[in-house]
Design a protein around this nucleic acid. Sequence first.
DNA 1: AGAGATATATAGCCTTGCCTATATATCCAG
DNA 2: CTGGATATATAGGCAAGGCTATATATCTCT
Lengths: 200, 200
Amino acid sequence: MGRTQLERKADTRERLVRAAAELFGSLGFHSVSTDAVAARADRTSGAVYAHFGSKQGLLLAVLEEWRSETAADAEVELDAATDLDARTEALWRTLSSRTGERGDAWLMLEMELWLHAARQPELRQLLAERYDEIRHEMAHAFEEWAATAGSSLASPPDEMSTLVLALLLGLGLQRRMEPESVSDELAGRGIRSLLGLGAG
Amino acid sequence: MGRTQLERKADTRERLVRAAAELFGSLGFHSVSTDAVAARADRTSGAVYAHFGSKQGLLLAVLEEWRSETAADAEVELDAATDLDARTEALWRTLSSRTGERGDAWLMLEMELWLHAARQPELRQLLAERYDEIRHEMAHAFEEWAATAGSSLASPPDEMSTLVLALLLGLGLQRRMEPESVSDELAGRGIRSLLGLGAG
DNA sequence: AGAGATATATAGCCTTGCCTATATATCCAG
DNA sequence: CTGGATATATAGGCAAGGCTATATATCTCT
């Protein structure tokens, strides 16, 4: 094919990282061989080592990608919502709909990466940055909501977003074990409580 | 030694499960060999297979133990606290103090087991039951608090406990990546928000 | 005390999978 | 068009570790 070497390389790299993210999330890092990742990317393990040097290097690349990826996603969905209920619901759905859709890929990979980051200091920094970004996105959204509503926020927005992010993650964890225990309605109510908008 | 066979067996089993819990939590299931577990328990891998049949069987035993263990712990700490601030703080500390103390064993094992349960339906049930128990413990405590204070709860207690558990888990996750992002004070405020006691 | 049962230890087979060394395909420069 | 550079594929070495088969220690019961 008439593609430049840089294009070929970039394409392969992207395929490998995507394949790795899918497999690491669904099966776990240690249950996935480099050959399996390569096969899913229509490459061979040679390409993995040419690009990342080691399986660990591949994990690092996945985490780096993950670090910046989802913050943007959430922003899109949030901006689309209009009234408050729709907004809190959208917030929850950015997590829970993915949970249904892609075979739970989202939360599974999040937790897989969290565990690796918790065990390896050099990865921790990256995931910390990811959480920071997400919190800032959310904090920004909250400020806009308040401004639109003409009211002001009860607490500093980045503290609120820490709490809301925590709630979303924790509800996701419970929901994955027992879906009935976490209704959409309950999630929305929880978020509104944290935002200081009454539990009504 | 003059111990009965049942005692010997029970002792070995307990040692193995404890050792496995510690190692699986800190290093991860797949990074720990059966030999390593056995060595930590002052036994050999033969004992592991005599007791559990496989490494997977050992994981199952750890999860079964874990299922019932911590709910009781939390209850103790909660009953000791007197006023509301102390109570919410105790609630948070049951998670966060362990996070410091035992080298983060608690949260790490929790997440390790969550991932395995998320991937294996036969394990999921067990972790779901664990969460149920914890929620019920907490719900019970909330009802007592309300009764003591002479007030009634704004929402059904088991819904509140779902939200509070979610918050605690999520804050633990963030805290492990970036301790500064989750102060004790913030955690307490979040809990009180969810309990409908104002964000003050 | 001694035979049988039970609990744990020892030794090694065999698979898996990470990685390296090398070969081949694809592209770029002159 | 050709030689060098780059990107990917192929093949196999090598270690780790799960598991089994068997041996040994410990207990139980008469």
